[in-house]
């Protein structure tokens, strides 16, 4: 809809109106200003997409948002590239969808994003620094990645709402809730668990406020880092504490290749301090080369069930 600007302010009321327009212009989105300027030059432009419009060309930077979209019947035009364990994180329907390289901490390359002509991006906290840049090139961005298991159905509903598929979203969320309930039902054992990220002599431990920590808790594990808090959900904890808290199970997420699993497990078993733990003595050190403990993939039920198996539940 073309818009025209008042060219003069002949009365105090008009002047006030004029100041109001200027104020609106100062705080208006770039797209609106462009439309107004073009319109004032006598060019008719279509109005910019309203922020509530259902997006058509969507990029999903996280496996969770991409898989959820797929389950809701919408295919993203591109998904974020996952460096390790990719085979297990995206649903088969997304095999042919282009991968978008992501770099820490900003996420996707803006030039690449521009060429994809997307209108919406599902991002996550991990790429928070890139959000402004994406918005600057006219994209709508929403961070929709659950940080806890209980957030999964809630975020599913919010993604569905953005896609204009609230009814399907409610149905999917209900199914996810049921899966989580089933996966956490009948837990009898509560072994002490240490989950670590990385390799070398200073790996980071998953805390309760990490995704993996919450999954382990739901699967019946008692994190030996329980009660510790750090932003991001990870912290380097003392080997003395590992000896004293004596985990029954150690799960390592080393970002290695599947072929490295045996070697990495052996290194952890022989590590000073750790070698005396129940986990090392009973050879219950597990190495995961997938990303399922680092970020949600879709519904959390399958991940919880996998961890339950490791914990002997």
């Amino acid at each position: 809809m073309p818009t025209t600007l008042p060219s003069t302010c002949s009365s105090p009321r008009a002047a006030r109106r004029g100041r109001g327009v200027i104020r609106s212009l100062l705080f208006a989105p770039a797209g609106l200003i462009r439309s107004l300027l073009f319109a004032s030059a006598g060019l008719a432009l279509t109005a910019p997409v309203a922020s509530s419009a259902v997006p058509k060309r969507i990029i999903a930077l996280t496996p969770y948002s991409a898989n959820t979209m797929t389950l809701l019947g919408v295919k993203p035009i591109a998904v974020g590239q996952v460096s390790s364990g990719e085979g297990s994180v995206y649903s088969a329907a997304l095999n042919t969808v282009p991968r978008l390289p992501l770099s820490h901490p900003s996420g996707p390359n803006l030039e690449q994003l521009t060429t994809l002509k997307a209108d919406f991006v599902f991002s996550s906290q991990a790429w928070a620094r890139g959000k402004k840049g994406m918005e600057r090139i006219g994209l709508r961005v929403a961070e929709r990645e659950p940080r806890t298991v209980s957030e999964v159905p809630r975020q599913t509903k919010r993604i569905a709402s953005i896609l204009g598929r609230s009814a399907q979203g409610a149905k999917l969320a209900k199914a996810q809730e049921a899966q989580i309930k089933a996966a956490t039902k009948g837990i009898k054992k509560h072994p002490k668990v240490l989950v670590v990220l990385g390799v070398g002599n200073s790996p980071y431990a998953f805390l309760e406020n990490s995704w993996g920590g919450d999954v382990v808790k739901r699967a019946g594990g008692t994190l030996i880092t329980a009660g510790l808090k750090a932003s991001g959900g990870f912290a380097r904890i003392s080997d003395e504490a590992v000896v004293a808290r004596n985990p029954d199970v150690i799960i390592a997420v080393p970002h290695g290749a599947p072929g490295d699993i045996k070697k990495i497990a052996a290194q952890m078993r022989d590590r000073p301090g750790w070698r005396t733990t129940n986990a090392a003595r009973t050879r219950r050190i597990y190495v995961s080369t997938s990303n399922t403990l680092l970020q949600p993939i879709s519904g959390a039920g399958t991940t919880i069930a996998g961890v339950r198996k490791i914990l002997g539940n």
């Binding site: 460096s83 390790s84 992501l102 990385g198 390799v199 980071y204 970002h255």
Partner: peptide, 8 residues
Amino acid sequence: YPDRVSSA
């Protein structure tokens, strides 16, 4: 290797 940086 952005996903492995935590190790270093």
